[in-house]
């Protein structure tokens, strides 16, 4: 579904990603772990097309098309969803209206029927249950005055509504207490199918106890330095990132 080959990217002329390779198939969950500042969010943003990130070399193919050639909204319409590490406030715009606009934009681009407010409301109420959030949240302005936990749940709700093919979740667990973490994780698990894929970016191992990955990759200093199965996460939990943070020669290849 997604193939990243030797991806280099920079911000303001500073190289952040220094040759990332990664291949994700439908039905798989990949975890990318790494210390702060290693480039995890940069990778997520580059895949989603955030302005200001310059791809200096490498390719990204998504469903056979050149992902980097698409505008951010085109990527979203093609089924790429990014759950933001720091969700953005959209003042004055009610969440239900915001979501309906996004949902309909996706529907339209696929030649599917757009939903009127009543029909959409029905769908939204159902998704609110799936991810177990307070329905009152949908009547508030997007992320405005939301607590950290509410913002993360809101991202899950949006994912549940937009039903992406490739969901990139950038630290959906940061800032959550144990209960909130469990709810968010349940939400994520409820959305996993054999058709879609998950790229879960995290600093800590703990969410991986709930959302069990098929593959774990360690990203350090803009490169994937090690890949493995779910046990790699536990190893990092006990040993930390220290041993990977020494300058190394070549990046290790990711599993094919």
């Amino acid at each position: 579904m997604l193939e990243i080959r030797d991806l280099h990217a920079s911000i303001d002329g500073v190289n952040i990603l220094k040759g990332v390779n990664l291949r994700i198939n439908a039905g798989e969950t990949h975890a990318v772990m790494g210390p702060n500042g290693s480039g995890k969010s940069t990778l997520a943003f580059v895949l989603a097309g955030k302005p200001g990130y310059a791809v200096t070399s490498g390719q990204v193919t998504y469903d056979g098309v050149d992902l980097l050639g698409l505008a951010p909204e085109e990527r979203a319409r093609a089924g790429v969803f990014l759950s933001f590490q720091h969700p953005v406030e959209v003042p004055g715009v009610r969440l239900d209206q915001f979501l309906r606009a996004g949902f309909n934009a996706l529907q339209k681009s696929r030649g599917a029927a757009e939903l009127d407010p009543l029909k959409f409301d029905r769908l939204l109420r159902q998704r609110v249950k799936t991810v177990n959030v307070d329905p009152a949240m949908t009547k508030r302005a997007v992320n405005e005055g939301f607590s950290g936990g509410e913002k993360k749940r809101n991202e899950m709700l949006q994912m549940a509504v937009l039903e992406p093919k490739l969901a990139i979740l950038d630290e959906p667990d940061s800032g959550l207490d144990v209960d909130a973490l469990r709810t968010v994780a349940q939400g994520i698990n409820g959305l996993r199918t054999t058709e879609n894929a998950l790229l879960l970016v995290t600093h800590y191992q703990r969410i991986l106890n709930h959302v069990v990955p098929d593959f774990v990759h360690v990203l350090v200093n803009g490169r994937i330095v090690k890949s493995g199965g779910k046990e790699l996460a536990l190893e990092i939990e006990s040993e930390g990132y220290d041993k990977y943070e020494q300058p190394r020669g070549e990046a290790l290849p990711s599993p094919a």
């Binding site: 989603a48 606009a101 996004g102």
Partner: peptide, 9 residues
Amino acid sequence: FYCNQRGLS
């Protein structure tokens, strides 16, 4: 960008 990421132009 946040809006774009949800499919909006």
